[in-house]
Each structure stands twice: as C-alpha cells, then as structure tokens.
Amino acid sequence: MSLSLLIDIASGALLLAGCLLVVSGAVGLLRLPDFYTRTHAGSLTDAAGATLLLLGLLLQADGWQSGVRLVLIMLFLLVTSPTAAHALAQAARRDGERLPAGDDEGRR
C-alpha cells in the first residue's frame, strides 16, 4: 500500500466527513425548533464542515504555495465563523429572543 494511496484515502475521508457535517448543518438549519439551535447548526457548517473540507483539500494540494493559502483560509474561517455565530446569538439575546419553553433557566 503506497503512501499516495493512503493520503488519498485520508483526504477522501476528511472530505466526506466535511460534506456530512455541511449537510447535517443544512438539515439542522431547516429542522431545529428555535433560533439558537438553528444558529448552532449554521455555525457548524461554517466552522467544522469547512475546516474538514479544507483539511481534505490540504492533503491534495500540489506544492507548498497552495498549502499555505489553504491553511490561511482555514485559520481565517476558524476565527470568523464562530465570531459571527456568537455575534448573531448575542444580538438575538439582546433583542429578547427567548430560549424554547421547558427550559428551567428561561432567558438568562
């Protein structure tokens, strides 16, 4: 079993996992009951799904120039997408968006 085959398998697995996360994020965005859980699903797509996809692509990158670019994109996404999700949730909380009923705490 050669090294390139191993790399191909690993990158394929990463890409597949990333795709699964993106699809599950999309399903969650449509199906989850309230605003905060939907935000969570949406941020999952950005942060985890895109990171896994980029890691998969990184294994396929030819030359270090593309690799460095992919790593930079990944770092950028890792900083921005959780921040965006946080800002969205925080704005909703300020706006009086409530957690779903049945929660003991209610609105913090």
Binding site: V79, T83, H86, R94
Partner: peptide, 19 residues
C-alpha cells in the same frame, strides 16, 4: 453596554484588522 457584551467580536476584529 453593547460594546462590553460583544467582547468576542471586538477581539476578533482587532486580531483580523492587520491581516
């Protein structure tokens, strides 16, 4: 008040600005 609540946003944009 808003500014103090959005600490994550502030730190992230401060970090990103030079880049």
């Amino acid at each position: 008040v808003v500014m103090s609540e959005y600490r994550v946003l502030r730190v992230a944009s401060k970090v990103l600005m030079p880049f």
